[in-house]
Design a protein around this nucleic acid. Structure first.
Length: 466
RNA sequence: GCUCCCAUCGUCUAGUGGCCCAGGACACCGCCCUCUCAAGGCGGGAACACGAGUUCGAACCUCGUUGGGAGCGCCA
């Protein structure tokens, strides 16, 4: 049988960061093993599932470029199949109808808790062989083995054993006629030919129940790999109240898909001391068996570092489209200013995200809207500013409009006036930006364009002399 | 309460009985470079949760303690 993994989100919200890592690991594992990666939408909870959420998940997967090898499978379209399999279990005496109301079940649980036991179903209808009847409370329960134990070798956690006595007869079909999670998952994974189930470790407790269903169905049991959780900075569960959890929110905040993937692949997994991984390296080196057992915390500082790393090393042209997306998002028309790739080169050493970059880039796509008083007082209102600006203007008027020639022109101004670069660059910087912070002065001038640069020098000259 | 899982610098991790008085990275601090801010270079502080055992030898093996987490639904 060929190797096959799947990512199976339930569409009750956007794709969050933990889900993205699970998807990545599934994808990576499939790629390394030369197998297939499939996507399944677990939408049997019709109360909470939405089409918007399905689309949001698909969009996020596409943005991360985690491509599935087949069209997604939707559980809501497989109802007939679930009924068929449940019917078979019923016919073989491996499942039975039960008629307790939700209130009765609740009372049962409380009674068990009161006795210091694990809350579970009593098994009242298990062996009663009561005739089938129409009843609003009718559910189908799986006859879980009562003796022995279930043992499985988890690829990340190691050997895990559960006593069957701890497990009760779980509902596999609800009274509303839909299958429950634990049942649908097994039927789907069998039908889809899944050989390795990779999911969050909040599912370890479900695994023995599922294994028992596999066995009842006479199907081969896949391998399991349960990934530890991702916690927030404080070591608490990630919550959208206090953290960015949606993958697309990271896009909006200016992160690159590759940076997110690189960050996620190293969160819980490593390959010696290596920190930077291309997608190809990840796919070649990653092995889910090497994933750590312990939960880890999400550290935005390290993500920032990685994001800047890719900002600095990726081809500016390749980065341009995503950067333009950010410019447009804050109301800047990329057509009304310098080439985005040039802006990226000027700013990539100075920001961690494309969002920051877009914000800082505004100065080249529109007029100076604000003059920093301190900057003006310090660098424009001094003895040499007017001469610097006038001399620079003259030199810049005829120079070839590229960073390097501009750089030389400015050095000539310094030589001519016998001033240090600090005395030259700062007045020009204030002239170009209205502030005393910007990229290197040659790039700052270059990006403004010749006409606009000269215009801004005139304006600054007026301020300096006024 | 019960079941299951986890435990190396602030954080992500290397480490699978001697190479470790524990290595790398992020963050932090200092110095250098420097037209501002960065980036970069160099250097620094910083951890094996605790206690027993096994062993000539334990971060690595065993047991216990403590501390975290997950699950216990007709949600997934």
């Amino acid at each position: 049988m060929s190797f096959r993994t799947r990512f199976a989100p339930s569409p009750t919200g956007f794709l969050h960061i933990g889900g993205a890592r699970t998807a990545l690991y599934c994808w990576l594992e499939a790629r390394r093993r030369g197998g297939e990666f499939l996507l399944r939408i677990e939408d049997t909870d019709r109360e909470r599932s939405t089409d918007e959420a399905v689309q949001a998940i698909l969009d996020a997967m596409a943005w991360l470029d985690l491509d599935a090898d087949a069209a997604p499978v939707y559980q809501t379209q497989r109802l007939a199949r679930y009924r068929e399999v449940a019917g078979r279990l019923l016919a073989e005496g491996k499942a039975y109808y039960a008629y307790e109301s939700k209130e009765e079940i609740e009372a049962m649980r409380e009674a068990a808790m009161a006795k210091g036991e694990k809350p579970r179903y009593s098994g009242y209808y298990r062996d009663r062989n009561e005739p089938y009847r129409e009843d609003p409370n009718r559910v189908i329960r799986f006859k879980n083995p009562q003796q022995g134990s279930v043992v499985f070798e988890d690829k990340v956690k190691g050997r895990i054993e559960f006593a069957n006595g701890e497990l009760d007869d779980l509902v596999i079909f609800r009274s509303d006629g839909w299958p429950t999670y634990n049942f649908a998952v097994v039927v789907d994974d069998i039908d889809m030919g899944i050989t390795e189930v990779i999911r969050g470790d909040d599912h370890v407790n479900n695994t023995p129940r599922q294994i028992n269903i596999y066995k009842a169905l006479g199907a081969p049991v896949p391998e399991f790999a349960h990934l530890p959780m991702i916690l927030d900075k404080e070591g608490k569960k990630l919550s959208k109240r206090t953290n960015s959890v949606s993958v697309m929110e990271y896009r909006e905040n200016g992160y690159l898909p590759h940076a997110i993937l690189n960050y996620l692949v190293r969160l819980g997994w490593s390959h010696g001391d290596q920190e930077i991984f291309s997608r190809e390296e990840m796919a070649r080196l990653f092995d889910v068996a090497d994933v750590n057992k312990a939960a880890s915390r999400f550290d935005t500082e390290k993500l920032n570092w990685l994001n800047q790393h890719y900002l600095k090393t990726d081809d500016p042209q390749a980065l341009a489209p995503e950067f333009e997306w950010h410019l447009e998002r804050i109301g800047i028309d990329p057509a009304r200013g310098p080439a985005p790739a040039d802006v990226i080169v000027a700013l990539r050493d100075r920001v961690h995200t494309l969002k920051e970059m877009a914000e800082k880039a505004g100065i080249w796509y529109g007029p100076i809207t604000e003059w920093d008083d301190k900057a003006v007082a310090k660098h424009l209102k001094n003895d040499s500013a007017a001469a610097v600006l006038a001399t620079a203007k003259a030199r810049l008027a005829g120079v070839e409009w590229k960073p390097e020639p501009i750089h030389q022109a400015i050095e000539q101004v310094a030589a001519q006036l016998e001033l240090g670069m600090g005395k030259i660059a700062q007045p020009l910087r204030v002239a170009m930006t209205g502030t005393q912070v910007s990229p290197s002065i040659d790039h700052t001038i270059y990006l403004a364009g010749r006409a606009e640069a000269l215009k801004r020098i005139d304006t600054a000259l007026a301020i300096a002399q006024g």
